[in-house]
């Protein structure tokens, strides 16, 4: 078929491809810039950072910032706290979200649209205002200064979005597959396990990526709900480094850079299963 293209057409086609590649490349560079910025500044001394925040480090590289993060700031311990919270947040979202979204996407039941809308509307209330009443009720049942409190708050915060995402994706699971599974002897849970989970895995991966990272990076909820020093999450601890008048940004950048690693790792692992791309897509 390609022979039918004239030289002229081929030139423009190649030209178009080069332009697209360049645009994508420029975007990619711009997306990498913030990481680069954090890296170069995490290696500067405070004095150098104030004088030269955008250039490459000219003085001795301050690897010490990273070492101190581990040895004194105990960032790995903080990672542990954040990880526990993010892990259970995501686990609950996947379990509860899959259950609910399957119903919304594939089961016809009375009042479906009404319930769906009610769940969605909880998304529209900004957290700043509901935090105080929520905090007071959490304090009364012992959920303050408790990882579980943060996890439950995240479930409530992220479940509506999870359900929306999963429902949107589960809708494209062919009904024939579900019927076939039923005939093969799968019950409700069986269909979930053998059809919905594998077919909906891209949506589940997205859920894991989004909310692992959202809960990992979130500042407000753990800042308000967790008190004890040994329970602080990594973002809360890092945010306490920079004040209105004082602080050591290079040191904070070192910490922020380190705390981006787990988030990047989760993304790297789960993004692969989002879509295999065209050539590998024909697994069905």
């Amino acid at each position: 078929m390609k022979t039918s293209l004239s030289k002229h057409q081929r030139f423009w086609r190649t030209f178009g491809r080069v332009v697209i590649f360049l645009v994508l490349l420029i975007l990619a560079i711009s997306f990498l810039y913030p990481l680069y910025y954090m890296l170069i500044n995490s290696l500067k001394s405070l004095g150098e950072y104030y004088v030269n925040p955008f250039g490459l480090p000219r003085e001795q590289l301050q690897w010490q910032n990273f070492i101190t993060m581990i040895s004194q700031f105990k960032i790995l311990k903080l990672f542990g706290n954040s990880f526990i919270i993010s892990f259970f947040t995501v686990l609950g979202l996947v379990v509860f979200g899959t259950l609910a979204s399957y119903s919304f996407a594939k089961v016809n039941f009375k009042g479906k649209n009404g319930v769906y809308l009610v769940i969605l509307t909880t998304l529209f209330v900004p957290a700043q205002v509901t935090m105080i009443p929520m905090y007071i009720s959490f304090a009364k049942v012992g959920l303050v200064d408790n990882f579980l409190g943060v996890v439950i708050a995240y479930w409530a915060m992220f479940l509506p979005e999870t359900i929306m995402l999963m429902t949107a994706n589960f809708k494209s699971i062919p009904n024939e597959l579900l019927e076939a599974a039923t005939i093969d002897g799968c019950d409700y849970i069986g269909r979930l396990r053998h059809v919905v989970m594998p077919m909906g895995w891209p949506a589940i991966s997205l859920t894991i990526i989004f909310f692992f990272i959202s809960s990992w990076n979130d500042l407000f909820t753990p800042m308000v709900l967790l008190k004890s020093m040994d329970k602080r999450t990594v973002m809360v601890a890092l945010s306490s480094l920079i004040g209105r008048y004082t602080g050591d940004p290079p040191f904070q950048y070192a910490g922020l850079l380190m705390s981006a690693i787990p988030a990047l790792a989760v993304y790297a692992v789960f993004q692969k299963s989002i879509v295999k791309g065209m050539s590998m897509g024909a697994i069905k």
Partner: peptide, 18 residues
């Protein structure tokens, strides 16, 4: 250690009420 002074005021109020 409260990470943020502004938030600490609100949390203090909420804690006091609870």
């Amino acid at each position: 250690v409260s990470a943020d002074g502004e938030t600490a005021h609100q949390t203090f109020k909420a804690d006091a009420m609870a």
